[in-house]
């Protein structure tokens, strides 16, 4: 069975929990005390992920420690309909990259504030805003064409990769008022069958 090592408040882990739920995949979970215990840096965890990254998915002999890699793997190997990745792999891979950039800026700023690290999150927010602008513009133009998701007319892992950190933007101190297309798209993601929440994310 698929085994997910995760931390409840991590948006990276939420991406994987979301896709597992939307694909209806049975799995078991192991909670990792990332904060305050820093268990992801322990010797035993580093046997799974040498860099101490979260989440980790074990699927048979395969071990993956990168949210994007896990999304691609689950969509490629466990989606009988083949709708979550295969239709537009190049375009989807680009948005997976944007999702990773959002995690490294907006997501990192959120955790900095949440764990009260005393560090200044302003430089990270400055890096996140152009990505949010680009996302909002793309979603607005696509919606005008009748495409209500990031890559076409149906949800793909691109949506999951960019949803998690943007829906939690207010926890990083970024108000979403300036991004109306992003907010409408959030509502559409909330309507995908199998949608689940995490703390800070509200159902429709």
């Amino acid at each position: 069975m698929i085994r997910l090592h995760h931390y409840e408040l991590s948006a990276e882990c939420y991406k994987v929990r979301l896709l597992l739920s939307m694909l209806g995949l049975a799995h078991e979970t192991v909670q990792v005390d990332m904060y305050p215990g820093a268990a992801h840096l322990s010797d035993s965890y580093r046997r799974l992920s040498p860099l101490g990254r979260l989440p980790v998915v074990e699927d048979g002999d395969l071990v993956l420690d990168d949210a994007n890699a896990i999304l691609v793997h689950l969509a490629a190997s466990h989606d009988p309909g083949g709708t979550w990745f295969a239709r537009a792999p190049g375009q989807i891979a680009q948005w997976l990259g944007y999702g990773a950039a959002l995690a490294a800026s907006l997501g990192a700023a959120r955790l900095m504030d949440c764990f009260d690290t005393g560090m200044d999150s302003a430089p990270l927010i400055a890096r996140a805003l152009p990505i949010l602008d680009a996302l909002d513009r793309h979603l607005w133009l696509e919606a005008a064409e009748g495409h209500f998701y990031l890559c076409g007319t149906g949800p793909t892992i691109a949506d999951i990769a960019c949803f998690a950190d943007t829906v939690l933007a207010e926890e990083a101190g970024v108000a979403l008022r300036r991004y109306p297309a992003v907010r409408r798209w959030h509502d559409r993601v909330r309507m995908i069958p199998g949608f689940i929440v995490m703390p800070g994310v509200f159902p429709r």
Binding site: E8, L9, C114, E170, E171, M198, P199, G200, F202
Partner: peptide, 8 residues
């Protein structure tokens, strides 16, 4: 989890 639900 409980605390993070209260935070927002």
């Amino acid at each position: 989890l409980i605390f993070a639900q209260d935070k927002p």
